[in-house]
């Protein structure tokens, strides 16, 4: 397989890998490292690639496993992931600032969710994956996915309304 063939396969979903990694690792830099690692592994195993009928699903599973391992090792080393993605971009309009802030709230609320719920929200509401795909990717039963998704959505709504009511960021 040539480089351009590989890129043609990888390009459509590399952003999805990055977004899933970032949802789990939170830090943009960590997520970029993780994505790079996964892409390198894919490139190294490119000879076996034709055997997977869905390369995207395979790569997403790899990303998930890599990030969860990473989180586990960080946890055992008692380290907190450091990130600095909260860069304020100068907005001219008050409304624009407010909207951006409220979007940032949602992101922070999501960061507080358990990893599994975070992944399900990311896959369903951001990437619009089908339920069967999510079940396979996370190795979960259909009902378990639905329950976790419903819980995650409700949790986001509750916390968002709370913040909305008290107006605290």
């Amino acid at each position: 397989m040539t480089q351009s063939e590989f890129l043609n396969i990888v390009m459509p979903f590399k952003d999805k890998l990055y977004r899933l990694a970032k949802r789990l690792l939170i830090s943009a830099e960590e997520a970029e490292d993780a994505t790079q690692e996964v892409l390198l592994k894919l490139w190294a195993g490119k000879k076996q690639m034709h055997r997977y009928n869905n390369v995207e699903a395979f790569a997403m599973t790899m990303t998930k496993n890599f990030c969860l391992d990473r989180l586990k090792s960080k946890q055992s080393a008692n380290l907190k992931l450091v990130h600095s993605n909260y860069a304020e971009t100068g907005a001219s309009l008050q409304q624009q600032v407010e909207r951006r802030n409220s979007l940032e709230w949602v992101e922070r609320i999501m960061e507080e969710l358990p990893e599994q719920q975070r992944m399900i929200l990311q896959l369903r509401d951001v990437e619009a994956y089908e339920y069967e795909e999510i079940e396979k990717l996370l190795d979960m039963k259909p009902t378990a996915v639905r329950v976790a998704l419903s819980r995650a959505r409700k949790a986001v709504r509750e916390k968002l309304l709370e913040k909305h009511r008290y107006g605290i960021g």
């Binding site: 890129l7 390009m11 590399k14 952003d15 990055y18 970029e32 994505t35 892409l39 390198l40 490139w43």
Partner: peptide, 9 residues
Amino acid sequence: ERYTRQVPL
């Protein structure tokens, strides 16, 4: 959101 790094080969 986009992955902005070069795809490493």
